[in-house]
Write a protein that binds this DNA or RNA. Structure first.
Lengths: 244, 244
DNA sequence: GCCTTTAAATTGTCAGACATTTAAATGTAA
DNA sequence: TTACATTTAAATGTCTGACAATTTAAAGGC
């Protein structure tokens, strides 16, 4: 491990990259201990604060964990689904909010991904998943539910649908799309009437999973996408009217 | 902004979280300038190195960028698709390699997601996308191509398929799944015979997009998934034999 | 043999200093 | 007045040295 002396980029960024590459390329394995900060400083010929900044960068990406005390230090960390999931949601949310992604684009992506899960979910759904979906549907019919709570329940319902596919990689990938959409969905004011329509479609989806009818699930998801789009357009139109 | 004095977690992690929350919740907008390191140190009542470690954590997540010189400082950064994509690929790759995800699970997720794009890709594919796909197919027929190069071309082909759907959110989400699979795919030794089969299936997919036949694309992707699975199983079986 | 104490190693934090970079402000000349 | 060169101030980047907090292993006492 050697670092370049005088480029444009930060030394801490270079050091972080060197270590990150070692981990990603498998030259360092999970739970392997990195040299101490003092040793790294010596190896890279920089000071300890610089090494520390590099290590914090890696810690922010959940690539290492640190432990204090004798025989402590920095260790290569096993990336868990939970952490990867959290990072993915954060990144996706920011990406949508900072880049003016249209409601249509986000909606289309979300439902395309959910339809990808539907056949697998029909084949593998457990009683547990079905119960979760029914419970969320029931919650959505409660009067006096705030728009935010309704959206949260909606996310929970769709997460159950995704998880029912029984593929953790799929769950991880899709969680970002579904959860990152929530702020966009929260813009919508759900009238009693639209809630009823959504609840009916949710019920059809749950029924399709129950009877393992992939085609019916696909159709219901298409209709739900179309209905969500019209709701979104109504909100936009209402805002445009108010603006004039 | 105030920070807790004596919890278990690092001060720099707490500070990073406070600022990250401010960004994610929209209390700070893109290109807004953060207070200087000295000012942040004063506000949070910590030293400047601690603040710097916090800022490096945020920089590692592409949430801020820093600029030296007068009127420089840390600014909220607009998260680009490219950066989000890079982070997503890194995270996904590590998640797969560190958690012993089975070849079957990864394969299933990948093709389920690609099938989700297929109908959109059929509707919207441009001449450019088709040309890219044909070019990669041609490359895959070159004799003497290494397994690694063949895999890289395969990834390029599938990326073109995903991009053809014309939905950046979808491209971003799927890139992680497709690209993170590459190390797993690189394990496979592609015989001349298997390359020929894959090329035939790729051609069918390209043809389906060309004629905008979504059903044909779906079928071809299903067959390609099944064939990839058998190739993977052959490799596993060969290894098992060698191990005895 | 078990418990307590001690010592050592390592990260977490701080203070202060200097180097480097950048843009605005200022000054100067055409 | 405008264009260009110089100065200056603000900010990050880096270093040195130190001390605090934490944790484990080893030493020592019973």
């Amino acid at each position: 491990m050697k670092i370049d002396p005088n480029t444009k980029t930060d030394l801490s960024a270079q050091i972080a990259k060197a270590i990150r590459d070692a981990i990603v390329e498998g030259r360092m394995i999970v739970d392997e201990r990195l040299p101490s900060e003092a040793e790294l400083a010596e190896q890279f010929e920089v000071s300890r604060p610089t090494v520390r900044e590099a290590l914090k960068r890696l810690a922010a990406q959940s690539l290492i964990r640190t432990q204090r005390g004798a025989f402590g230090g920095a260790f290569v960390k096993r990336l868990s689904y939970e952490e990867a999931y959290g990072q993915h949601v954060t990144t996706s949310t920011l990406l949508l909010s900072m880049n003016a992604v249209s409601f249509e684009t986000a909606c289309e992506a979300r439902y395309a991904l959910e339809r990808a899960c539907a056949p697998l979910a029909c084949a593998r759904r457990s009683a547990d998943h079905l119960a979760t979906m029914r419970a969320e549907i029931h919650r959505q019919t409660q009067p006096g539910l705030s728009d935010e709570s309704f959206c949260a329940s909606d996310v929970a319902f769709h997460r159950a649908l995704v998880d029912a596919a029984g593929n953790p990689v799929l769950s991880y990938q899709l969680a970002g799309a579904v959860e990152a959409m929530q702020p966009l969905m929260n813009m919508i004011t759900f009238t009693a009437r639209s809630r009823e329509t959504i609840e009916r479609l949710h019920t059809r989806i749950a029924d399709a999973l129950d009877t393992q009818d992939a085609a019916a699930a696909d159709t219901a998801l298409h209709e739900l996408e179309a209905y969500t789009l019209t709701l979104g357009h109504d909100v936009m139109a209402a805002r445009a009217r108010k603006a004039t």
